[in-house]
C-alpha cells in the first residue's frame, strides 16, 4: 500500500469510531435495525482499514489476540447464553432469560448471544483477510 498521511492519521480514529458504532449497533439490534452480524462486519471494516493504513502486524498487535481466538470466545459466549434455558425443566436449550430492572429497560441473555455472534464474525473476517494484506 502506498503511504498516505491522511489515512495513517485517521485510521486509529476511524477504528475507534467503527468499534463504538458496531457495539451500539449490536446493543440496539433487538429493537431497531442492527445486530451481531452487522455489528461484526462494521468492526471488521474498521480493523481492516487500520491494517491497511498501519500494516497487518500492527493491527494484529492491537487486537491482542489471534483472530481465531475471537471466534472461539464468540462461539463460547453464544453457547453459554443458552445454558440458562436448563434452569427450569420444561424449557429447552437456548431459551433466553430476561431481567427487568425498571424504567422500561429489558436485559436478556439474547444480548450475550448477539455479542457472541458479533465476536465470531469479527474473528472470522479478520482471520481470513488480515493474512491477505502485505506487511
Amino acid at each position: 500500500m502506498n503511504d498516505s498521511l491522511i489515512l495513517r492519521t485517521s485510521a486509529p480514529l476511524l477504528l475507534w469510531l467503527a468499534l463504538a458504532v458496531s457495539i451500539f449497533i449490536v446493543l440496539r439490534g433487538h429493537n431497531a435495525p442492527g445486530g451481531g452480524f452487522l455489528g461484526g462486519l462494521i468492526a471488521s471494516a474498521g480493523i481492516l482499514l487500520y491494517a491497511i493504513a498501519h500494516g497487518r502486524d500492527r493491527a494484529m498487535r492491537r487486537m491482542r489476540m489471534a483472530p481465531v481466538g475471537l471466534c472461539g470466545i464468540g462461539l463460547l459466549a453464544a453457547l453459554a447464553s443458552g445454558l440458562l434455558g436448563f434452569v427450569t425443566p420444561d424449557t429447552p436449550y437456548l431459551t433466553h432469560r430476561w431481567w427487568f430492572p425498571g424504567g422500561g429497560l429489558a436485559l436478556g441473555t439474547t444480548i450475550v448471544f448477539d455479542l457472541g455472534v458479533y465476536l465470531a464474525v469479527v474473528g472470522t473476517v479478520t482471520a481470513m483477510f488480515l493474512p491477505l494484506l502485505r506487511k
Binding site: G29, H30, N31, A32, P33, G34, G35, G36, F37, H96, W98, A106, G108, T110, F113, D114, V117
Partner: peptide, 13 residues
C-alpha cells in the same frame, strides 16, 4: 421475546 426488531429476534431467539 421482548424485541421489536423481528428479524433480530428470529436470529437470536
Amino acid at each position: 421475546a421482548h424485541g421489536r426488531n423481528v428479524v433480530n429476534v428470529i436470529l437470536v431467539d
